[in-house]
Amino acid sequence: MKTKFLLPYRLKLVGWVLFLMGLFLLGFALITGTEDPDFLNTEVFALAATRIHIFGEDTSTNFKFIENNVFFEIIGLLLIIGGICIAFSKHKNEDEFISKLRLDSLLWATYINYGVLIFSILFIYWLSFFYVLVANMFTILLLFIIRFYWVLAKSSKFEAYEN
């Protein structure tokens, strides 16, 4: 079972570097309370941007350049691109068994991810639900990576007892 959709093996290391950079910046921002460093204020093109106003009507800016701080956009991109490279780069010895572990792990991660989302739709509301949606952008990749590497490590452990 060969697929042409996997990334080259060398991107795995690149993925780890990007992902850990994203994780470090996120941790740094959360621990120190740093938000929006000034030098990252820049003009970005917005297909859609709605601003919520507590007093008054919400305003929408569509298909225009807007002022924005890109700190969290950079973190998001580092985590997602890094995560994709880690998850979907070929294994050193990618073969049909590892492809099966990969497919099983992807199914497992998808079920768990949407299970958590269904639970959240039913029991989590308002701003808390928004936080769940933000986390949900990354959880499917994270769950897949954890599950895939866990079953891979487990099958390597079995192998260690054999010659």
Partner: peptide, 30 residues
């Protein structure tokens, strides 16, 4: 050894081990 066989047929050692243990149904080609 599992490693010898894996190398000859171009798969990982994990694959040979999983087949021997009955944990994986291999492809016709393999």
């Amino acid at each position: 050894t599992q490693a010898d066989l894996a190398e000859r047929v171009g798969v990982s050692r994990q694959t040979i081990n999983a087949i021997e243990k009955g944990r994986y149904n291999l492809s016709i080609v393999l």
